[in-house]
C-alpha cells in the first residue's frame, strides 16, 4: 500500500518537476531542478525493477550531467555578460510598469 502511494507521488512529481525545469526564470535553478529530477528518476527505475539503470541514472543522469550543465553555465555566463541579471531586471521593469 505504502509502495503504491510512493508510485503515485513519483508519477505526479516527475512531470511537475520537468515542467518546473523549463518554467523557472533562473537557468541556474533549472539546472539544480534537473539534478533533483534525475535523482527522482533513479527512484522510479528502482520501483520499476531496473536497479542497473537506477545506478547508471544516479551516477550519470544526476551527477555527471548536472556537473556538465553547471560548468557550461559557468562558461556561458562568463561569455554572456550578466545574462541572468538582465532577465531579472527586465522582470522587475515589467512589474514596475504593471504597477504604474
Amino acid at each position: 500500500m505504502i509502495l503504491i502511494l510512493f508510485d503515485f507521488v513519483l508519477i505526479i512529481t516527475l512531470p511537475l518537476l520537468g515542467w518546473a525545469v523549463l518554467a523557472t526564470e533562473d537557468i541556474f535553478k533549472a539546472v539544480v531542478l534537473f539534478v533533483s529530477f534525475g535523482l527522482l528518476m533513479s527512484l522510479a527505475w528502482v520501483r520499476l525493477n531496473a536497479p542497473d539503470v537506477a545506478l547508471a541514472e544516479a551516477a550519470i543522469g544526476a551527477g555527471v550531467t548536472g556537473a556538465l550543465f553547471l560548468s557550461a553555465l559557468n562558461k556561458l555566463e562568463r561569455s554572456v555578460k550578466h545574462e541572468r541579471r538582465i532577465n531579472r531586471d527586465e522582470e522587475k521593469e515589467a512589474i514596475n510598469e504593471r504597477e504604474i
Binding site: P51, D52, A59, I60, V64
Partner: peptide, 17 residues
C-alpha cells in the same frame, strides 16, 4: 548482480570531476 562497466565508469568519471 546490478552493476557493470557503465556504472563503474560513471563513478570513475565522478571521481575525476
Amino acid at each position: 548482480q546490478a552493476g557493470g562497466a557503465f556504472q563503474g565508469g560513471a563513478l570513475l568519471g565522478g571521481a575525476g570531476i
